[in-house]
């Protein structure tokens, strides 16, 4: 489900949490928690603003399959 964070690339800066317009992403001490993936608008703000390229967008099957 979108977005997917690569923990090896993530530098824990928290910008994806700060910039998500839907309150989907929560920055925790141990890493990024994509807490409400169903509420993602696929705007791509997290991916565009991630300084380390750790964010990938995955589309759920229903969007690709219909």
């Amino acid at each position: 489900m979108p977005p997917v964070i690569d923990p090896d690339k993530c530098n824990l800066c928290g910008v994806c949490d700060e910039h998500c317009p839907l309150d989907v992403i929560y920055m925790e001490n141990e890493g990024v928690d994509v807490r409400y993936p169903l509420e993602c608008w696929h705007c791509g703000a997290c991916r565009q603003d991630c300084p380390t390229g750790a964010v990938d967008i995955e589309f759920p099957l229903i969007m690709l399959g219909v």
Binding site: E18, H19, C20, P21, W41, C43, G44, A45, Q48, D49
Partner: peptide, 13 residues
């Protein structure tokens, strides 16, 4: 309600 950097209709562009 969100943040001013990325919100509203043109949040992503």
């Amino acid at each position: 309600k969100a943040n001013i950097e990325r919100s509203g209709a043109i949040a992503g562009g």
